[in-house]
């Protein structure tokens, strides 16, 4: 059966015992057991299998067996649904109109507590705003610069090279202003949270009243998507909170979608370029691979097909 399906393999495998047979035929005429059928091979492969399985189990737990966890489902937080983001998929760019709206939501709502340290004004140029808009926005913010000739720091309007202003000067001030909770920096928040964009969208839109029996600490709010349920941040997105300049209805889910798209862009500014380059590289490299196989076969054909003949001279009797 097997030898019929893989005739080449079978003939090679049966050539193996011959190999040892011929080599040792001067010392022993007895047929040798092939190595693959020997006890050593059986023991070695069994040991390797057991070892690999044990290693895997040690690293990742025993497969197909449910693991006991000290956490309840509520402590892990509700798993977010997978939402159909416009940028989901390997060929999809961000929806830049959504980034622009999301920036507006961030600026008007989130930036009251959350910083965005790693994004500079210039990053917005050509992504969600044009140069003049960004310059105007930057100039509204005063930045400390210096020292000047007298050795003193001075205030100046923002430039394109400046980074987004932080709402609090330091972590302690941020905690003091938020009842002990530290609002995280949002630059990389989409990458930094399990579930990414889906999780943040679910969190922003997932505020509900605590179910009976759930005790939420003083000053905390209940959100089933947040691990543990109690989150210091209150619900902030309500319908009509901002007014979009492209007349998109500002429902709370629309605002959440836009701001999450913006934060996703902030975490991955290279996103669009990366996907496009990946497409191009995949096309080029796979064609290179295919053609190189053709060329290899072409170059090897005479070597693979050659025969060496030797016609012995007729013995003169």
């Amino acid at each position: 059966m097997l030898s019929q399906a893989f005739p080449r393999l079978a003939s090679r495998a049966s050539a193996l015992p011959r190999l040892s047979q011929v080599r040792f035929s001067s010392s022993s005429t007895q047929a040798q057991t092939p190595f693959l059928a020997s006890r050593t091979a059986v023991f070695a492969s069994t040991a390797a299998t057991v070892g690999l399985t044990a290693w895997y189990a040690h690293l990742y737990g025993i497969s197909f067996l449910p693991e006991a966890s000290a956490n309840t489902a509520a402590e892990d937080g509700l798993h977010p649904a997978a939402y159909p983001w416009p940028h989901k998929g390997i060929f999809e760019t961000f929806d830049h109109a959504s980034i622009r709206r999301g920036y507006q939501v961030y600026r008007e709502v989130c930036s009251a507590c959350h910083s965005l340290d790693r994004i500079a004004w210039r990053n917005l140029v050509g992504v969600s705003h044009n140069v003049d808009e960004v310059k105007a926005m930057a100039e509204e913010i005063e930045y400390t610069d210096g020292p000047n000739d007298e050795g003193e720091m001075f205030q100046r309007p923002g430039k394109l090279a400046d980074y987004m202003p932080a709402p609090y000067p330091n972590e302690e001030a941020a905690r003091a202003g938020n009842g002990g909770g530290l609002p995280p920096d949002l630059s990389l928040i989409v990458k930094a949270r399990h579930g990414g964009a889906d999780y943040i969208y679910s969190l922003l839109t997932g505020y509900v009243d605590p179910p009976p029996g759930v005790h939420v600490a003083e000053g905390m709010n209940y959100n089933p998507y947040f691990p543990g349920g109690g989150i210091a941040m209150a619900r902030v997105l309500f319908d009509g909170l901002v007014e979009y300049d492209d007349k998109t209805p500002a429902t709370s889910s629309q605002m959440a979608k836009d701001v999450v798209t913006f934060l996703n862009w902030a975490a991955e500014p290279e996103h669009d370029q990366r996907k496009k380059l990946g497409l191009q590289a995949a096309i080029i490299l796979s064609s290179l691979f295919a053609i190189s196989i053709y060329v290899k076969r072409f170059k090897w054909a005479p070597i693979k097909n050659r025969k060496i003949f030797y016609n012995p001279p007729k013995e003169a009797h």
Binding site: T93, S128, N130
Partner: peptide, 15 residues
């Protein structure tokens, strides 16, 4: 494929 999503598609509106 990404018509209407990229900045160059919506840029004219804001200009």
């Amino acid at each position: 494929h990404n018509r209407g999503k990229q900045w160059k598609d919506i840029r004219s509106k804001y200009i």
